[in-house]
Structure formats: structure tokens, C-alpha cells
Write a protein that binds this DNA or RNA. Structure first.
Lengths: 158, 158
DNA sequence: ATTGAAATGTTTTTAAA
DNA sequence: TTTAAAAACATTTCAAT
């Protein structure tokens, strides 16, 4: 149920749509040397099978006034199911947290945070993270430069 | 040049397109209570102004066979311009690295890595990161669970 | 400067070959 | 897989606010 058989053409479609998610079916068909109807059916299959989970506009955080990005490593006081569930619930509703992963290693969670500025970050840290969430330890690093922005997953070679 | 004035309608458009990047202009127009032509012009303006940087299909790594995600913190041996440029160049071309940020703190870089399995990760670490890249120290953490997947940036309230 | 309505050309989608 | 027709859609123009 996890992995799915993808042929060369599927990979071409995914490569195209990862970078240009609003390509028309007609243009897509041309690029992969398929008729529009055949192309459409393949894309719909990729969507149905969950290979393509959705489509998203990529918004520039700077132009929204979100000038500061941070990675925050978090360790919880306790690791019982209730504590973990509570923390997950908080993270889910805190809009400043754009992504959160549970990790191996000495820090339990890595939060990716997008805020306007240091003051906004400070309020996030004090009012939210350190206040309500059963947090034992926190370690914040700020993004100085994005060396490589996410531009899609690596695709197996066809 | 950085921030841009966005009214309530722009924010509604961004909110919609961040989650459903392939909404038709007609549907989009209905949702924000605008005529299709007015809606189209606004979306095109957001694209021209760089607020919308692009559109991307969101692909499920599991279904591609990328079952292991890791965050790798990296410290370089030296920090002169040449070392930094060389490292950035490597990171850019290593397809396993899906994102890379230069950070404040004692570790210089945070790499987000997507690989098939531990063996693949091991090869990435030994053949690439520790081999060619002027790396002094590396600290890897593996993703146990995605608590909150990226689902778009928080938008200011209209 | 931004909008809505109508007209036009394109794309998607269905159904049939 | 392709073709052809129908429906839905994007896009332009233009007049109005």
C-alpha cells in the first residue's frame, strides 16, 4: 500500500507538476508526449493513489511581512501519551509553527516557525511554547540564509 | 520592495490557493465574491508582484519510496567565502537534500534530507557530506513522526 | 484604479470509436 | 489510444463606477 509503481511517464508528470503545479493538461500532455486524454487519466490516477496529495501556491514569506524564520528544538518534561497528545494539539493550533517533526536524538521535536520579527518570536516563545506546553528545554536557531529552498522531492530515475 | 499591501480579498485568495493551488479561476472568483475577470487580475497581480512565487504539486514521499527523512546539522571546518560557496554548491546539487538553511547558533547549517532507507542515508553521509564538503561536524536526527506538515504560511488577518 | 458583463478563444471532459 | 463533440473555463475588451 505504501510504494506505487511509477513508469517513466509518471515520473515526468510528477517532475513537471512539482515545479509548475498549474500547467494545463494540454501543455502537460505535450511535454510528456501523450495525448491530452491519456495524460489527464494518468494525472487523475496519481491523485487518486495519493502520489499527488494536493496542489499549493508557494507564497513568499517576506512579502507577507514574515521576515524571520526559526528552527526550534524542543524537549518535553514528560513523554507519556497525554503529554505528547497535548503538545501535538498545541502545535497544531499555533499558526506560527509551519511544520513540526518528532525526532530521534536528545531533542524530541523540531519546530519550523515563521514570524514577523524578533519581538513576535519572543511572544511566541514566552506566551505559547514555554507557557502552556509541558516543555523542559528549548533551543532556537534563526535562519540567516536559505541555501536551498524546497523545490520538490527527488524522483527515482525512470 | 519587500512587503506589499494586501487587502482582505487578496488574503482570501492566498488562503484558498495555498491549500488548493489548482482551483479554477471561476471557483476562486465565487469564493471571494468577485467576478471572474476581477479575480483573475488580482491573482495575476499577486503572481507578478512575487507574492505567489509559483505552484507545486505536493508529492507523498512514502509513495515514491522515500521512507526516511532526516534533519542533519552541519558545522564547517572553515567559514571563509570559498568554503561556504563550495558547500552551498554541493548542497545545491545533492538531490537528497530537499532544503538547506544557514543558521545562527553553534551549527552552521540545517539540511533536510529525504532518502529511501538507512542504507541510502549512510551512503549520503559517507560518500557525500563527510567526503567532499569541508565538514567539521555532523549531527543527524531522523523523523519519527510528522506532527504538523507544512500547509502554507500564516496569513495576517484581513 | 478596480470592477462586472459580454464576447471570444482555449481547455477540459465525456463518450464513442 | 485517439477522435470529436459538449461543457466548462480563461482571457480580453469595454463600459461603468
Amino acid at each position: 500500500m505504501a510504494t506505487i509503481d511509477l513508469d517513466r511517464t509518471d515520473l515526468l508528470l510528477l517532475a513537471a507538476l512539482q515545479h509548475e503545479g498549474r500547467l494545463t493538461n494540454a501543455e502537460l500532455a505535450e511535454r510528456v508526449h501523450l495525448s491530452p486524454s491519456a495524460c489527464l487519466r494518468r494525472v487523475q490516477r496519481l491523485e487518486r493513489d495519493g502520489v499527488i496529495a494536493g496542489y499549493a501556491a508557494q507564497v513568499d514569506p517576506e512579502r507577507l511581512g514574515l521576515g524571520l524564520q526559526a528552527f526550534v528544538r524542543v524537549q518535553l518534561v514528560r513523554h507519556d501519551a497525554a503529554s505528547v497528545a497535548a503538545f501535538s494539539g498545541f502545535v497544531e493550533q499555533w499558526e506560527e509553527v509551519v511544520a513540526c517533526h518528532a525526532l530521534t536524538g536528545d531533542m524530541d521535536y523540531l519546530l519550523q516557525v515563521a514570524v514577523r520579527d524578533l519581538e513576535h518570536f519572543s511572544r511566541f516563545l514566552l506566551d505559547r511554547l514555554l507557557n502552556q506546553a509541558g516543555v523542559a528545554d528549548v533551543n532556537s536557531s534563526f535562519v540567516l540564509r536559505t541555501v536551498k529552498a524546497f523545490r520538490g522531492l527527488p524522483l527515482p530515475r525512470g
